[in-house]
Design a binder for these strands. Structure first.
Lengths: 120, 120
DNA sequence: TAATGTAGGCACTAAAAAGTAACAAATGAA
DNA sequence: TTCATTTGTTACTTTTTAGTGCCTACATTA
């Protein structure tokens, strides 16, 4: 059984790493298909995406729904437990925004513009 | 210049990684000397501790104060900017606690008891 | 018949993060 | 004189994390 020195380490085990918070921030806005997530996160590879999604699913914060179609359709969404992270995710997003503004006064240089067609 | 797809990535760059949130959670309670931090985080090595502290300092969230003594005395504390992370750190700690309770009903097995002499 | 689209597996390689161990510096104490 | 103390550095090695390329499945469409 995993041992922690302080409780916050348990939270980091669930949402730590390079991608999980980003994935969750997308899923907090809407449920998403695998391909949508990939487009929303241009830097991630299929392998990493699947891997991170599996771990989030195991930890009970996201739900994976498979529709029996061809070609396959898989949708990811937050579970009720996942929604308990909303406060953290929101403040992280807000802090990131103001940190960018503080660090790079002309913020348009820093944010990569992605045309999120699905979001229109 | 670093580019982000979404602003939250900027936050992760500052507090991401295995140790930074833990360090900040300790500093939110009190200013700490290097050795105290090391004792509070039994898993960390001197190298990682220094490295993470340097990065946090560069990002402006902690302050490093050197007292001209022998043997040396160095104290770390949150800067005002660092305090803007308090909300995030608090909710992360709280979420971690309840996650442990949910996952391991007898939580005493999971938390390593450290006698934090400095805290008495 | 052959290409398309979607989600994902697997083996292998590359890169990043973290750990190890030895060393430094300066003063007071044994 | 030699050791302990405290913080930190550096070179090197190991471990972890991430990336690449290739493969599958199968109904639909061209």
């Amino acid at each position: 059984m995993k041992k922690y020195n302080i409780p916050v380490e348990a939270a980091l085990e669930v949402i730590g790493g390079k991608w999980k918070v980003v994935i969750l921030c997308h899923l907090i806005k809407d449920k998403r298909r695998t391909g949508e997530l990939k487009r929303l996160m241009p830097g991630i590879t299929q392998k990493m995406l699947t891997q991170q999604l599996r771990e989030l699913e195991e930890d009970g914060v996201i739900l994976r729904e498979v529709y029996n179609q061809v070609p396959p359709r898989v949708e990811y969404s937050l579970t009720e437990y996942g929604w308990s992270l909303k406060g953290i995710l929101d403040s992280l997003c807000a802090w990131g925004e103001q940190h960018i503004e503080k660090t790079y006064p002309n913020k348009e240089e820093v944010l990569i513009q992605t045309e999120e067609l699905e979001q229109v």
